[in-house]
Design a binder for these strands. Structure first.
Length: 489
RNA sequence: GGCGACGUGGCCAAGUGGUAAGGCAAGGGUCUGCAAAACCCUCAUCACGGGUUCGAAUCCCGUCGUCGCCUCCA
């Protein structure tokens, strides 16, 4: 089956075919950096990270641009309010966002253009729009003339007449048409500005994205993405101004993610009902947020809440559980066919993702694979028998950007384990097992061996104590008929 | 007021014409010194009312409700 992608332009799923075989150009609208980003921003970037990873899994080479809007009204306002320099303020939030992208395991975009670095290109575009009568100057501002583009409103499904009917009062009288939008804004006293043929000013919001696409990806791109709150006016205006210059269809596919909801409303900076990425990551694994996004459809709203977080977290643990090794002492069984299960999972996964990135159904395929792995493990399958399925599980989860493997024991600080080891060894009547005091894994193994001795003597209180204390150190101990095993919490 | 999306079990959520994936939670069971995990079993007829059809959660009409956009917004 070929990849189908829902295109906002046609309001339907279409077969995806890139302009150039094997290569995909994708532009995703990034944040305006005037405040700490919240998990709604994270949702958007996660959605397109998943899209990108799957395209790459499908063999495409992906050129991916994500912008930072680092000059606009909000930034200037905030900087003035805090007595900071607007550039410095923007820079600090870019740094923070950059860090979040790493923590969230987002593949870095090929390029991260910034509005302030595209000024010459923007000025050039504005001049050319004016040359062709698509834009006009008014008091230092330059406006795009919407009536000049006959298919204006194509993306958002709006008609100029309808919008005029609902237009608010207070329309700038210098505009020829109420819906005309600024491609260049005259600077007020003390605002950051750049010289232009129309006097000092800065770019309008929409023009920067057009400039970046043209500059970094070309006149036509395969995918343009962003939140669905950007459909109008932002993306509509991008299309208008870009196509007025290139006279070619701008983006083949317009993809829009749904909004993160908190207490029944869209999470947004202006409403103030938000949870920042920093706050979320302080309490949860980054992959928990990814699981929440994967659990639903990217186009619909995602309701954030304690219960949803908990469910995502437990689901993640379940996936991770599939990677656990064979039971201690398992010698293998005859009738295990996990290769077939792995192949089925892959097929199910691909069919789901090919259908407009149906990640929820793709996850279901992984859960099914986990169940089969667990069944086989319980039946006594050996590591060798489990491995093919676990390899596929790890690979496919990786395509979704999930990191199923926990920290390696070699990275853990051995000291607390050494202390516990010494404490417990003192209670032991016989000799304590040999361990490498500098290696957490070795110490844990030694502690488990000791615990086995206590258990053999039915000293349940001490063996429970070892289990409890290990749990506090982040090590979960699980007993089975053949012995005990452990894994990181 | 205009445009658009949506309403599936306790919660989240797939599924767009052939008799409801999956996750979480809950109950029962197996295993177990206990615990945890795992495994097995149980748990919905799809907001409501009409219509089309041999057959609809899935198509059409209406009603109610929720949300988004129309101003900065991922």
């Amino acid at each position: 089956m070929a990849l189908q992608i829902y295109n906002t332009l046609s309001r339907s799923k279409e077969t995806f075919e890139p302009l150039k075989p094997g290569q995909v150009s994708m532009y995703v609208c990034g944040p305006t950096v005037y405040a700490s980003a919240h998990i709604g921003h994270a949702m958007s970037t996660l959605v397109f990270d998943i899209v990108r990873r799957y395209l790459q899994y499908r063999g495409y080479e992906v050129a991916h641009a994500m912008n930072y809007t680092d000059v606009d009204d909000k930034i200037i306002q905030r900087a003035n309010h805090e007595g900071r320099d607007p550039h410095e303020l923007a820079e600090s939030y870019i740094k923070e966002y950059d860090q979040h992208l790493k923590e969230l395991n987002i593949l870095p975009a090929t390029v991260f253009p910034r509005a302030t670095e595209e000024i010459p290109a923007i000025i050039d575009m504005v001049a050319r729009l004016m040359d062709d009568d698509y834009a006009y100057e008014a008091g230092g501002d330059v406006y795009y003339r919407v009536e000049k583009k006959d298919d204006y409103g194509r993306l958002s499904g709006r008609k100029l007449e309808d919008m005029q009917a609902g237009a608010r009062i207070g329309v700038d009288e210098r505009k020829e048409h109420p819906m005309d939008f600024a491609v260049w804004k005259a600077a007020k006293e003390g605002e950051p500005s750049w010289d232009s043929p129309w006097g000092p000013g800065r770019p309008g919001w929409h023009i920067e994205c057009s400039a970046m696409v043209l500059n970094h990806l070309g006149q036509q791109i395969d995918i343009h993405g962003g939140g669905n709150d950007l459909i109008f006016p932002h993306h509509e205006n991008e299309i208008a101004q870009t196509e007025s210059l290139t006279h070619k269809p701008f983006a083949r596919f317009w993809m829009h993610n749904g909004m993160m909801q908190l207490s029944g409303e869209k999470m947004s900076k202006s409403l103030g009902n938000l949870i920042t990425i920093k706050e979320f990551l302080a309490d949860h694994d980054a992959d928990v947020l990814r699981m929440m996004v994967l659990g639903g459809s990217y186009r619909g709203p995602l309701t954030f809440g304690d219960e949803a977080v908990e469910a995502a977290s437990r689901g993640l643990e379940r996936l991770r559980g599939g990677l656990r090794p064979a039971l201690p002492g398992a010698s293998g069984v005859d009738d295990v066919d996990l290769e077939a299960a792995a192949a089925d999972a892959r097929t199910g996964f691909e069919n789901a993702m090919d259908d407009d990135f149906n990640s929820s159904a793709a996850l279901a395929a992984l859960f099914e694979l986990v169940r089969q792995i667990n069944q086989s493990r319980d039946a006594g399958a050996s590591d060798e028998q489990l491995r093919p399925a676990q390899t596929v599980l790890l690979e496919l989860a990786g395509v979704l950007g999930l990191r199923l493997e926990k920290i390696a024991a070699t990275d853990a600080d051995p000291e607390p384990f050494a202390a516990l080891y010494t404490e417990m060894a003192a209670k032991l009547e016989g000799d304590a097992p040999q361990v490498d005091q500098g290696d957490a894994a070795s110490l844990i193994e030694g502690l488990l061996a000791m615990r086995q001795m206590f258990r053999a003597q039915k000293q349940w209180d001490i063996s429970d104590q070892i289990r409890d204390q290990l749990a506090e150190l982040g090590v979960i101990v699980e007993d089975s008929a053949g012995g005990s095993s452990w894994h990181w919490a």
